[in-house]
């Protein structure tokens, strides 16, 4: 179950303020980087939802995002549907795909789950790569962005698109929290703790896993469609397993199961990538060493570490102020 702590509220506020500031003041490249961060943040929220709260460490979320991007491009470019309909269609199709993957993989655990999802991801990658209908290696271009001129918003403008993505990310965050706090989300956490016990209590475990995986897939599909709109061109590289691997790296670097942490991780990775690649062509080396260091330190990522250092003290102080009841984190209703 997901809980908001004062520290998490502070981190969210800082993230939002930073994003708004960047959206308001940055130039073209700054905006591009911001959009990249926002879309990656959606993907890692989707991944944290299944990995951090359901123990389903997926190596196919990059591919799901790719499915969303390809579905959006196909619905718009080939079937001629409007961007809005294409967007809804892409989200639905990706969600359905993810639901099936989740249902099939529900019996696998640990390393087998990782491998099974990897297999499905690579299956999608190979299929797209080899199908001339999707442009094969060349990818697809000429993708349109959503038309919000009726609301007075021109999404072809980078700044508006960045703000739009920020708004969508906010909604995705709220939706993720709502899912995790629902009966379904609670059951998912129960399944992560003890699948056997949940089954003995009468829960159809595979359905819960598949449902949440499907919901997570919808978010990944949304992120994919936005990414297609952003670059207005897509290629099979989007579905490669290393994209899923990178998303997992971000979740871990940020802090598994904290929602806020992975978003911080997304900022860290994208900024690091851009800053480092300006200095050295070997930025993978730095990210790799960082990853090894974080995992070996046994801290739960950057945010997990901060929570362990500051959070406990902060919560204690707040508890001391309010009432002398120890232990529980304050729960917001």
């Amino acid at each position: 179950m997901f809980r908001h702590t004062p520290l998490r509220y502070i981190a969210l506020a800082l993230l939002a303020a930073g994003a708004l500031f960047q959206a308001a003041t940055a130039g073209y490249f700054g905006l591009e980087i911001l959009i990249e961060i926002l879309i990656l943040a959606m993907l890692v929220l989707a991944l944290d939802m299944v990995a951090g709260f359901g123990g389903m460490v997926s190596l196919c979320h990059g591919a799901l995002m790719g499915v969303g991007a390809y579905a959006f491009a196909t619905f718009g470019g080939i079937l001629g549907l409007t961007p809005l309909v294409s967007l809804v269609g892409a989200i639905a199709l990706t969600g359905a795909t993810a639901w099936v993957i989740g249902a099939v993989c529900a019996r696998s655990h640990g390393i087998y789950f990782i491998m099974a999802t990897l297999a499905f991801g690579q299956m999608a990658y190979s299929y797209v790569f080899q199908t001339p209908f999707f442009g094969g290696d060349d990818g697809m271009g000429g993708i349109e962005r959503l038309d919000l001129t009726a609301l007075g918003i021109d999404l072809t403008d980078s700044r508006s698109f960045a703000l739009f993505c920020l708004g969508v990310l906010g909604l995705v965050y709220l939706a993720t929290v709502a899912v995790l706090r629902s009966g379904l989300g609670r059951s998912l956490t129960g399944v992560m703790h003890s699948e056997q016990r949940m089954r003995a209590l009468g829960l159809t475990v595979w359905r819960v896993k598949a449902d949440v995986f499907g919901l997570s897939g919808m978010i990944a599909g949304l992120a994919g469609a936005l990414s297609a709109m952003h670059i207005m061109y897509i290629s099979p590289g989007l579905l490669d397993w290393t994209v899923s691997g990178e998303a997992l790296v971000v979740v871990i670097l940020g802090g598994l199961g904290t929602l806020v942490g992975p978003m911080i991780g997304a900022v860290a990775l994208v900024v690091l990538k851009h800053e480092l690649s300006a200095i050295t062509p070997y930025w993978h080396l730095v990210v790799g060493l960082l990853l090894i260091g974080v995992v070996m330190s046994r801290a739960n990522g950057i945010f997990g570490w901060i929570e362990a250092q500051i959070g406990a003290r902060l919560d204690k102080r707040l508890n001391d102020i309010t009432r002398p009841q120890p232990t529980e984190e304050p729960r917001d209703a």
């Binding site: 379904l184 609670r186 059951s187 209590l201 009468g202 829960l203 159809t204 819960v208």
Partner: peptide, 22 residues
């Protein structure tokens, strides 16, 4: 929450997407 988890499975709220089962 432990008791609630079991009770929500029994009542069918444990698989609902809207609202907190507890």
């Amino acid at each position: 929450e432990n008791l609630g988890l079991a009770a929500s499975i029994h009542t069918g709220f444990g698989t609902r997407l809207w609202g907190d089962s507890l």
